[in-house]
Simulated scan of single mutants.
Amino acid sequence: MAYTGTPSPAGPIGSQYCVCKVELSVCGQNLLDRDVTSKSDPFCVLFMEVNGKWVELDRTETAVNNLNPAFSKKFVVDYHFEEVQKLKFALFDQDKSSMQLYEHDFLGEFSCTLGTIVSSKKITRTLLLGNGKPAGKGMITIAAQELSDNRVITLSMAGRKLDKKDLFGKSDPFLEFYKPGDDGKWMLVHRTEVIKYTLDPVWKPFTVPLVSLCDGDVEKLIKVMCYDYDSDGGHDFIGEFQTSVARMCEAQDDFPVSAITFYGQNKAATITRDFSFLDYILGGCQLMFTVGIDFTASNGNPRDPSSLHYINPMGTNEYLSAIWAVGQIIQDYDSDKMFPALGFGAQLPPDWKVTRNSNPRV
């Protein structure tokens, strides 16, 4: 069986690109000293806003006698691009062994969205009091890193001199790849296409996530089985072998399968990264938000509640709601926070002529 490294084919491997886990690292600088005979013993508490209320997610360890702590405990949160995920980082000086936060001295807090941290990769901000005023001293630094194994492996497979299994023809070979399951049984990972009427098949290159093929462990055994396809499902067994991703990546030698030799040539496999949506954001990619609004009469009288341009006494209409819903998400990924707004069809003073377009910045 020949393995040759090939570039990854275009297109995503899965659909889980906007949902992943993010690791948040927290450091404090020049914190308030609340202790009389020593320095503060700070720890950090992470909260997330859920239905308008702050819910505690996790806490770091306590850094004893330290006004510039670098906490080893990391916060791991699920990142959803399409949601506004509000976080609050609150620092306390531990005075007792109690889990009740009111029994510890408050050092300051900082609130932002997870999108703000992710788009910046690392932010440093002044700690504030609960009323939004500066705490007097203290800064907090938060860094984000994606937690995912987004490596993929690309394999190009070819067989040579396979067994002839068909009475009046050759063979119709295909391959199946297996990894050990938690129950000790082999679990099917991938099946190639069938190549008709040949003893020297060359299968199309295919790419699978490394975590799917071997749980991300390149030393883990995988099993490759070769069959001759039969339309009634009674496929004839040709041969098999066991190997690992590490061995395939280094292999130059042949793989014997039963009495058949599967010849190896070049490198066995190519491992690359299948970049996720978050990889692009952490790499500096920004998103732009442009609004286009139709001010023509086709949307109805603005005094009519059914109109998209309804001048609502409450201050909102359908257009504003849509702009707010999208802009609230996108704003975290645009550094200048300036969003072009294009409009057409409005009658603007002083001449009250119908405009073709306008381009204010909001």
Rank of each mutant, 00 (worst) to 15 (best):
C226Y: 08
V208Y: 00
Y197M: 11
E240I: 03
K220G: 01
F206Y: 08
L213S: 02
Q242G: 04
T243L: 06
K223S: 09
A246R: 15
T243N: 09
S244A: 05
T207D: 02
V194H: 03
D217F: 07
V245E: 01
R247D: 01
A246D: 11
D200N: 15
V194Q: 03
G233H: 02
G233L: 02
V208R: 05
P205Q: 02
P205N: 06
K204N: 10
Y197H: 14
V208D: 00
E193M: 02
F241A: 06
D215Q: 10
D215P: 07
D215Y: 14
Y197C: 07
D217K: 15
L210S: 07
M225F: 06
D236H: 09
T207Q: 06
D215W: 07
D228E: 07
H190N: 02
A246C: 09
I195T: 11
M248F: 10
I222R: 09
M248E: 13
Y227K: 05
T243F: 07
L213E: 01
L213W: 02
E219H: 13
L221D: 11
M225T: 12
P201K: 12
R247I: 04
G216V: 01
Y197T: 11
Y229G: 06
D236L: 08
Q242F: 07
S244V: 10
S231V: 11
F206N: 01
Y229D: 06
W203A: 03
F241M: 06
F241Q: 04
L221V: 12
C214V: 12
P209K: 05
K204C: 04
D232L: 08
P209C: 03
Q242T: 15
G216D: 01
E240G: 00
D232I: 08
V189E: 01
V202Q: 14
V211R: 15
V189C: 09
Y197Q: 13
Y227G: 02
G239D: 03
S231I: 11
Y229K: 09
